[in-house]
Each structure stands twice: as C-alpha cells, then as structure tokens.
Amino acid sequence: MTEKAIVASNLAYNYGDLMAVDHIDFELGRSEILGFLGPNGAGKTTTVKMLTGQLKPKAGQAKVLGFSVIDNVRKIQGRIGICFEETNLYEQMSARENLNLFAQLFGVDDFDPEQLLDRVGLSGRGREKVQNYSKGMKQRLMVARSILHRPEILFLDEPTDGLDPSSAESIRDVILEERDRGASVFLTTHNMAEADKLSDRVVFLNKGRIVALDTPHNLKQQYGSRVLKAEIVTEDGGLEEREIVLDEEETPELIRQLFADNKVSTVHSEEATLEDIFIEITGRGLSE
C-alpha cells in the first residue's frame, strides 16, 4: 500500500487561454478527508476530473494510489468512487437496478443493495423508479453508488449542495463512516461550514491556484482573530455591544475591567470562520 492516496505535483489544466488549474501541489493521506474549497470556477471540478481520469493533465503529474493518472487510468478507476455534482442515474430503473448494474461493472459479488440503501436512508425504497425520487433521495443514491465497491478513495463533488438538512446530515454521516472504514475522501465544496466540520485538512483554491492548505484549526489560528463579545446594560437601561480581541497582552485586564465597571448582560467568544479566512486571503467570497 502506498503511503499517500494522492500526490499531485505541478498539476495544470487550461481551456484555451483560461488557466483552470494552475500548477498545484498537494497530497491526500490515507483515511484523511481533504476539503477542496473554492468559489465556482476556481478549478475544483477540473482537478477532480484530472485525478479520476476524465481529463488528461496539460502539465504536471498526479499519482493516485501510486498510479499515474496519465498512464494508468484503468488501474485507478476500479479502486475509486465518484459522486458527481450533477445527478446522473438511470432514472427509468429502480435504485436496486442502478446499484446492481454498477456492482456488476465493478465486479462486486458480496453486495446487498438493501443494506447499502439502508446506510443512506433509503431503506424500503429500493424498488421504486429513480425518476420518482426527490433530489435529496437521488443524491443519497449517488453516494450509495459511489461506495458500493468499497473504494480506497472517495471523490465527492458538492455532495450536499441544495439538499435539505436531513439529507445533508445523512450524507455527512456516510462520509465519516467511509473515512473510519479506511477510505480517503476528496471533498469539493463551497460549503465552508461543512468543510470545517468534516475535513482533516482544507485546500483553498482561487483562480486555479492553491492559496492555503492546512487544518481548519491551524488556518483559524494563523489568519483569524478570536474576540469576546459582550452586551452591557447602559445607564438608561439599553444594551450596548463591546468587543475585546483575545490573545493580546492587555486582554486579561480589559476583561477584568469589563466585568468590574459594567453590568454584563451576555458574553460569548467568537472565532473566525473558514469563509472569513478565505475572504481575508483572496479578497473574494465563496459565493462570487
């Protein structure tokens, strides 16, 4: 077994004059969830396409499970699972028929479609045609399809985009279960809260370039500032908000004064979100 699930070196792809992925380097470890974050058009999907053999890199190299994505695509594709951003199921077939088809394509024998459907919250719905499913149910089925052959790497492209909270939560549970099983997860999303919750490390991608790569905790430490927010009661009975930046030399004294001089109504600490950090680094938001 190779030490790293993915090693990308100087990886690049351009569509004509547009540099979609601009010579990026990163690694994905075994049993690691790597959040690949960036706004639309940042190059996330193009990167996934190169890593999964759908596009041939224009420059650089990437090794997936020790095999080059340029020369050994076939050896890679049987060992990875992909959940696409857009729904691409056979809608005139039932969920079970969809899963059985791909089980046969992947040569999976010990496969129980009902058990898998149960894992993604579709228990008892396996015989229904997919065209009658809601968007959330289809997305859950897509996730089920991507993990039916127990892939060593799971590529998930915006897996919870536009889903109701219940569907999104069940998909997040499956992602964590897969990581615990030993799979590495390459998660592309522009949902920063989700990435923060799931990812061991995150990559910030902007205009095809990696602008930051670290654990969410370290990024917050490095770029964000923690503040204490308090609401104090004024003399006329109103409320006034005060902010004290934490981790400064004078912070303890400022906090002591706050409580000594005022009647404090509420107090809570607040730390920077990944979104704040992304904006701080790139000067643009994820929704742009």
Binding site: Q77, F84, F102
Partner: peptide
C-alpha cells in the same frame, strides 16, 4: 445528455 455515460467512463469499463 443525462450524463450517465460519465458514470460509466469512470468505472472499470474502458
């Protein structure tokens, strides 16, 4: 058009 082909192209089938 329904992009199911994409799913086939990333399966072990060449």
């Amino acid at each position: 058009e329904t992009k199911t082909l994409k799913a086939l192209l990333v399966s072990p089938l060449n």
